[in-house]
Deep mutational scan, measured.
Amino acid sequence: AKPPKTVTVKVEVTNADGETQTRTVTLTNLPKDLKPGDTVTLPETGQTARIVEITP
C-alpha cells in the first residue's frame, strides 16, 4: 500500500474572537484539484480554514 500523500498548506483560520490567523498545517489525502482560496476542515480542530498557499 502506498503511504498517504501529505501536503503542507498555509491556511487562514478565523478564531472565536473573529481574528484571522495564518497557520501552516500538514494534511493528508487532499483532493487533487485543491487550490488556494478553497476551504478545508482542519481535522484536529474541526475549524474551517481557507487555503492561502499549497507547498507541493
Score class of each variant (00 low, 15 high):
34 L>Y: 06
1 A>R: 06
21 Q>V: 15
35 K>T: 04
16 A>M: 09
39 T>W: 15
4 P>N: 12
41 T>N: 07
27 L>C: 07
1 A>W: 13
5 K>V: 13
23 R>M: 15
41 T>F: 14
45 T>M: 03
8 T>Q: 09
44 E>K: 07
34 L>K: 04
26 T>M: 09
54 I>R: 01
9 V>Y: 11
29 N>Q: 08
18 G>A: 02
1 A>M: 13
40 V>N: 00
1 A>E: 12
16 A>P: 09
24 T>V: 14
25 V>W: 08
27 L>F: 11
2 K>W: 14
22 T>L: 14
30 L>D: 06
2 K>D: 10
28 T>E: 07
56 P>A: 14
43 P>H: 07
2 K>T: 13
41 T>S: 06
4 P>K: 08
52 V>K: 04
44 E>W: 09
33 D>R: 06
11 V>G: 00
12 E>I: 12
38 D>V: 03
29 N>R: 11
51 I>C: 01
51 I>K: 00
51 I>G: 00
17 D>K: 12
8 T>W: 13
38 D>H: 03
45 T>N: 07
27 L>Y: 06
50 R>M: 11
32 K>M: 13
15 N>L: 12
47 Q>H: 05
16 A>S: 11
40 V>G: 00
37 G>W: 02
21 Q>G: 05
52 V>L: 14
5 K>G: 09
38 D>S: 04
6 T>N: 08
27 L>D: 01
24 T>E: 06
18 G>P: 01
40 V>W: 15
56 P>T: 12
22 T>D: 02
11 V>A: 02
31 P>N: 12
27 L>A: 02
49 A>G: 10
31 P>I: 11
10 K>G: 01
29 N>M: 08
40 V>D: 00
5 K>P: 15
41 T>C: 04
41 T>P: 03
41 T>A: 05
13 V>N: 01
39 T>Y: 15
30 L>T: 10
51 I>R: 00
24 T>F: 14
20 T>Q: 06
51 I>Q: 00
26 T>R: 10
51 I>D: 00
37 G>L: 01
53 E>V: 04
30 L>C: 10
38 D>I: 03
28 T>R: 13
5 K>C: 11
12 E>G: 01
53 E>L: 07
45 T>P: 02
5 K>L: 13
10 K>S: 04
49 A>F: 05
26 T>H: 10
56 P>H: 14
20 T>N: 04
53 E>F: 08
35 K>A: 07
4 P>F: 07
20 T>W: 07
8 T>Y: 11
49 A>L: 05
9 V>A: 06
31 P>T: 14
38 D>T: 03
5 K>T: 13
19 E>M: 11
33 D>V: 07
28 T>P: 08
19 E>S: 15
24 T>G: 01
52 V>M: 08
49 A>N: 00
28 T>K: 10
7 V>Y: 15
44 E>R: 08
29 N>L: 06
25 V>I: 14
7 V>C: 10
4 P>M: 11
26 T>C: 05
8 T>D: 05
53 E>Y: 10
53 E>S: 13
52 V>T: 04
54 I>T: 02
5 K>H: 13
32 K>W: 14
34 L>N: 01
1 A>Y: 11
8 T>N: 06
14 T>H: 06
32 K>C: 09
35 K>P: 00
42 L>M: 05
30 L>K: 03
55 T>H: 14
6 T>H: 12
6 T>D: 05
15 N>W: 05
31 P>G: 13
30 L>N: 06
24 T>W: 15
46 G>M: 06
56 P>F: 14
18 G>T: 01
24 T>Q: 05
40 V>A: 01
41 T>Y: 15
53 E>R: 06
9 V>H: 00
19 E>G: 09
1 A>S: 12
44 E>D: 15
20 T>C: 05
3 P>W: 10
29 N>F: 09
10 K>R: 10
15 N>H: 06
4 P>I: 13
49 A>M: 04
29 N>G: 13
6 T>K: 09
39 T>N: 07
56 P>I: 12
28 T>F: 10
3 P>G: 07
1 A>G: 11
44 E>C: 09
18 G>C: 03
43 P>S: 06
48 T>I: 14
43 P>C: 09
6 T>C: 09
54 I>D: 01
30 L>S: 09
12 E>M: 13
29 N>K: 08
13 V>R: 01
11 V>R: 00
48 T>E: 10
7 V>K: 04
47 Q>V: 06
53 E>G: 05
13 V>I: 14
1 A>F: 10
6 T>V: 10
54 I>E: 01
14 T>S: 06
3 P>H: 10
11 V>C: 03
30 L>V: 15
56 P>R: 08
56 P>V: 14
16 A>T: 08
35 K>N: 05
17 D>Y: 11
9 V>R: 00
45 T>C: 04
35 K>C: 05
